[in-house]
Amino acid sequence: MAVNHTDPSARPLRLSPAARTSARLVRSFAERETKALYKRNVLGWLWSLLKPLTTVAVYSLVFGVIYRATAPPTANGQAEVFALYLFSGLVVWNVFSTIVNGSMRWMDGVSELRKKIYFPTETALIGGAAATLLQSSLEALVLVLIMTVLANVSWTLVFLPVAMLLAAMFALGLGFAAAIVNARYRDIQHLTTIVLSVGFFMVPIVYTPDIVPDRAYGLPVARIVELNPLNSVIAVARDAVYFLETPDLADLATAAAWAIGTFAIGLAFFRRRSMAISEEP
């Protein structure tokens, strides 16, 4: 970088001054996003559960009740509740879609600010993602509570936060790119909504992977679903909270590779391009 802001009086500490600044900014932006979500409402936290729970209810009604979809039995075989099978996948999906959509909004929220003061812009998006994870952990908690009532819990639950974190990193990588492109072409946010609504049905959330036909309309449908990067992360979450099995190592590795790779590429792209956006008139 051509601009060096060096602080000769800085004391040597564990984190570099730049890293400490970034960490503080992430925290500030996460707090701001959390407040925006919940401050306006006394029942804010409960309110935030309304949307995911409604989604679970509606899809359970349509697919579980009307189409009579059946879910595989849980670990203890007590429940074959379609709603819970759905919920366990939806928790991860919500992390993903909220962050991809939010990234563009978080970017817009700070782009004027960035024209007047320098700060690492990616901290706004990382902060937003952190707030989303916090909010989603509430959903996850509800899911785990229900599972506890059904006596379907095990140590494998520790993989649920892992799955959520990987989904968040994957989403943030895409979100970095979407935010940059959306800063120039404002219709990207509408396109993203469309892509996400298609994407929702491309992963086994409202259906089980085993009912997907190998081929349909000349397309290798099962293969497409299988290769979807979110497929493995959702499989990890399901194993963790529904089947109570140690997640398949292949799933875990695939999910981690996608998450880390996408995040790294997205961040590099974002850093390269975000400077130019602050220069637009």
């Binding site: 051509a2 601009v3 060096n4 802001h5 602080d7 000769p8 007047k116 003061i117 320098y118 602050s278």
Partner: peptide, 22 residues
């Protein structure tokens, strides 16, 4: 202030920069 990057050349600011622009 580090808000923009020079197209060519170098700018070095030693110390904490506080900017009041606009």
């Amino acid at each position: 202030a580090g808000i923009h990057r020079p197209t060519s050349g170098r700018i070095t600011a030693r110390g904490r920069v506080s900017a009041l622009l606009e």
